[in-house]
Each structure stands twice: as structure tokens, then as C-alpha cells.
């Protein structure tokens, strides 16, 4: 089993709901708390497992805004685990989730240097490295209804831009989405073989403007009046 996320860049609206839901769940979950520094002050900062950045792709007029959520990719070839000298970082054999044992971590930052995706953040209060757990304490919790046994970010996403599933199973929703929509992994040249995949925006035909009614006299007068009033 190889659990992970598939993120649809076509439907992501960049609302940061996944990040706040993640923060809310994980600040009292297995690697809790996610410390905040100066949260109500001038320089707010803190530990987050999920960060959303916003990019412009292409050049005007053929450009598009892409909202880009990033969390741990739970890589097959997780160098963060290889470089860890204490054995605090580990990758679970049964489902591929990469975790940090908070009791063993000495806070040397070395794993964060090895991670190309910025998935690991040091908590200055506890002195340990923290990262996305794929809500391991939710997805196996049998006291929750089956449909809620998913990571907090996936449940929170209002655009259903996040899919959670087994990327090893070719018939899972995630694998299907990757196959059908041309899902890809980030920075493949580094050969970390990330589990999480991203779905590119769909290409749609441009909306034609040729069949719109040409301006009638009444419409032109209306537009002129509008312009005058605006001044």
C-alpha cells in the first residue's frame, strides 16, 4: 500500500482551507502542538504542515493563476529518512507514510536540508522536526464513520481538489485520476519518487466572442451614458 494525495490544480481555488484544517487537526494530534510564534503580533510565524503558494503560468493574455498546495509527498525514495542520524524519521513499510518519532528527534535540521519540497519544519519550542502525518491518527480510526477516515485537508477542501487514496492500487480513485488526467510528480529529476501527484489544469476551448450581438445604437448610447456617469 502506498497512501498519498492527488491534488487537482484545475479546481484548487487557493482558499487555504486545507492548511487551516490541517493546523486545526494536527495541533492536537500525534505530533502536537504546532507551535505559533508571535501569532497576534507584527511578525506572525509558526509550524505548518501544508503551505499554499500562488503562481502565474504563461504570459498575458495566455496566462493563468495556479494555486499550489504543498505538503509532505511521502516519497518512495525518502532521503529525509536516509540522512536521519537518530532514526527518528521513518517510513512505514505497510502504507508508505513518512513520520518523525518526536521522542527520538534531536533537532539537527538535516532532514529538512534533504527534503526538496519543504515538507519539514522545526518546532523551536519542542526542538523537534514536525511534518505531515497524512493524518495517520484519523485514517485508521475505527470510531470515525468510514467517509471521515481521510486526512483533514481532504475533508476540508470545498472544491474537492484533494483526493486521498492508495497510489499502488491501479483502480483507486487517486490512481485513476493520475492515469486519466496526466498526473505528475514534482521535480522528477531529483529522483525522490514522490507519492503525491498533481493534476494539471484541463485545457478547455476558448469561449468564442464572435457570436455575441454587435453593439446596437441603444447599447452604444447606454455605454456612453455609463461612462459619463462614472466620471
Amino acid at each position: 500500500m502506498r497512501l498519498g494525495l492527488v491534488i487537482d490544480l484545475d479546481t484548487c481555488v487557493g482558499c487555504h482551507a486545507c492548511a487551516t484544517a490541517c493546523k486545526e487537526w494536527n495541533t492536537s494530534a500525534m505530533t502536537a502542538p504546532l507551535t505559533d510564534y508571535d501569532p497576534y503580533g507584527k511578525e506572525p510565524s509558526g509550524v505548518w504542515f501544508n503551505r499554499i503558494r500562488h503562481y502565474e503560468i504563461g504570459e498575458y493574455p495566455n496566462n493563468k493563476t495556479i494555486n499550489f498546495p504543498m505538503s509532505c509527498m511521502h516519497c518512495e525514495n525518502a532521503e529525509c529518512v536516509t540522512v536521519c542520524p537518530t532514526g527518528a524519521s521513518y517510513k512505514r513499510a505497510e502504507d508508505g507514510i513518512v513520520l518523525v518519532d518526536q521522542d527520538k528527534c534531536m533537532g539537527c535540521n538535516y532532514c529538512s536540508w534533504a527534503c526538496p519540497y519543504g515538507a519539514r519544519e522545526l518546532d523551536r519550542e519542542s526542538g523537534t522536526m514536525k511534518k505531515c502525518t497524512l493524518c495517520v491518527d484519523r485514517i485508521y480510526d475505527e470510531t470515525l464513520p468510514v467517509e471521515e477516515r481521510q486526512p483533514a485537508c481532504v475533508l476540508a477542501c470545498p472544491a474537492h481538489a484533494r483526493l486521498f487514496g492508495d497510489l499502488d492500487d491501479p483502480e483507486s480513485t487517486t490512481s485513476r485520476a493520475v492515469r486519466e488526467r496526466g498526473g505528475y510528480a514534482l521535480m522528477p529529476e531529483l529522483n525522490y519518487n514522490p507519492t503525491n501527484h498533481y493534476l494539471p489544469p484541463r485545457t478547455r476551448p476558448a469561449i468564442s466572442t464572435s457570436d455575441l450581438p454587435r453593439g446596437s445604437l441603444a447599447r452604444k448610447v447606454k455605454e456612453w451614458v455609463n461612462r459619463v456617469i462614472e466620471r
Binding site: H16, E43, P44, S45, V47, W48, R51, I52, R53, H54, Y55, E56, I57, G58, E59, N62, T65, I66, F68, S112, P116, G118, E121, L122, Y184, A185, L186, M187, P188, E189, L190, Y198, P200
Partner: peptide, 28 residues
Amino acid sequence: GTTLQTATGFTRGKVRLLDQGHTFGTFL
């Protein structure tokens, strides 16, 4: 070999940061 294009997967066009998503610095 690694650029913002391979990092985001949009290898055919120009990619530009609009917003890094936080008002102040992070651990990163």
C-alpha cells in the same frame, strides 16, 4: 537542472510567483 518549471510541473511556459502564501517568514 532544477527550475521553478520542473518544481511546479509547468515546463512549457513561464512560471512566476504571485504570492508565497504567508505574510511573514517561515522555518523554510
